[in-house]
Design a binder for these strands. Structure first.
Lengths: 197, 197
DNA sequence: TTGACAGGTGAACGGATGATCACTATTGTA
DNA sequence: TACAATAGTGATCATCCGTTCACCTGTCAA
C-alpha cells in the first residue's frame, strides 16, 4: 500500500499560518508546525511545493512567497462527497485577499465605477468596479479608461488604419474616433462586482 | 512652510514591493528602495507606519506584516477636468478596500473559481472568481453555487412549478432540474476578475 | 531480493537580519 | 534667534536564517 503524500496537509498548515501572519514562515518554524526535526525537511518541502506551483521565490531576494494557486482551492475539481462529513468544512478558511488578487502595482492602481452598458458583451456591467492601473502603456486589445469629452470612458483600445480608436463591446454603441490625440487615463487590469443581497 | 511628510510616498513604494514579493522587505532593502543610508531609518519608518496603522507585527515572531489599511486603494469617482491639472487630483480619493467591498461576512465567504461559460450572458466568464457566501438563505433570482453530481455549479436559482431549478445564462446549456433535493453550497455575492497584462 | 527513490535527519557554515545607541541634520515654532 | 522635535546616520552585536552535505529509513517495482 502506498504512503499518502502529506504535502497537501502541510500546505494547509502553511495556509493557516499565512492567513494569520501574511508570510511564509521561516524554516525553523515550518519544522515546528509540521513536526519535522530538521530545517532541511522544510527546505525540501518548499522545493516540492514550488514544483507543484504553490510557492515561488521572490524576484527581489529569493525569499519564498505564495503563488496565486496557494490561495485557491480547486473546489469543483476535487469535490467528493464523503459520508456525513461536510466536505466543505475543510475548505472553510481559505486565505484569499482579493486586493492581492487584482491589484498589482498599488501605488498606480485606482478603482473606477463603471457606468452604462457599452461593454456588456465583454461581461462588464453598469455598476461594476473597474480596477485601473495608471501610467501603464496601453496596447491594442487592452480595455482602457480614456478621457473623452472630459469624462472617463471604458472601452477597448483598437488600432484602426494607424490610429487608436475606442471600441465599445455593445453593438448599440458607435466606435469612438477621437479627433485629437487619445488621452488614456489607465489600463483596466481587473473587475470587481457586487451582487445585491 | 511645512515640509511634506514623505511617509505616504514611502508607503507607496512598500505597497508596490509587497504586491510583487508578498512581504515587507528587510530593513536593508527598505533603505535601498527609499534611499536611506542606514537600516535604522527603515526601522524607525516602520514604527511610524505602525502608529499610523499601516503595518503591525506578527503574533508569531514579531516580524512586520501589513494591516488592512495597507491595502486600501483610492477611488476615482466624480471625474472633473480641471484645466491642466492632473485629473487624478480632481478625483475623489476615498480609500477603497476591495475585500471590504466584496466580502461582507468573512467567516462565511469563500472564493470559487468559475469554470466554463454557462453564465456568460450574465457577465460571468471562465476564469472569474466567484465570491460565495455560505449559510445564507438563497432566494429565487440569486446566483447560487449548487452541488450537482458531486460538483459545484454556478447557476441562477429559479422557481419553476413549485420546484427549484438551476438556470444557466447561456442558451447552449439546459436548465438543471435536480431529481432529489437541491443542495445549495452558497450564494454568489460578488465577482472578481483579473485581466492578463 | 535488490536497488532506486522519495522524504526526513543532523550538523556545520557564512551571511543577512533586527535591535540598539549615540550622534547629526533639518525644520517649525516659541 | 534659540530650541525642541522629527528624520536620518553609522556602527556594533547577538541571533536567526537558508544552504548544503552525508546519511538514514521506509516503500515500490523490477
Amino acid at each position: 500500500m502506498s504512503v499518502p503524500n502529506k504535502d497537501p496537509e502541510h500546505l494547509d498548515r502553511l495556509r493557516d499560518y499565512y492567513a494569520e501572519n501574511r508570510r511564509i514562515p521561516p524554516f525553523q518554524r515550518i519544522a515546528e508546525l509540521l513536526g519535522f526535526a530538521s530545517k532541511a525537511a522544510s527546505s525540501k518541502l518548499l522545493e516540492r511545493l514550488e514544483s507543484a506551483g504553490f510557492v515561488e521565490r521572490t524576484a527581489d531576494d529569493n525569499a519564498w512567497m505564495p503563488t496565486r494557486r496557494f490561495f485557491e482551492r480547486p473546489l469543483a475539481a476535487n469535490f467528493i462527497r464523503a459520508g456525513a462529513a461536510d466536505p466543505i468544512e475543510a475548505s472553510g478558511a481559505e486565505p484569499f485577499l482579493v486586493d492581492d488578487y487584482v491589484v498589482r502595482t498599488p501605488s498606480r492602481t485606482m478603482m473606477v465605477p463603471v457606468r452604462g452598458d457599452s461593454m456588456v458583451d465583454a461581461g462588464i456591467h453598469d455598476g461594476d468596479m473597474a480596477v485601473v492601473e495608471r501610467g501603464t502603456g496601453a496596447k491594442p486589445g487592452d480595455f482602457v479608461v480614456a478621457i473623452v469629452d472630459n469624462e472617463l470612458t471604458l472601452k477597448e483600445l483598437i488600432r484602426e488604419r494607424g490610429r487608436f480608436v475606442l471600441k465599445p463591446h455593445n453593438p448599440a454603441y458607435p466606435v469612438i474616433r477621437p479627433k485629437g490625440e487619445l488621452e488614456i487615463f489607465g489600463v483596466m487590469v481587473g473587475l470587481v462586482r457586487r451582487y445585491a443581497s
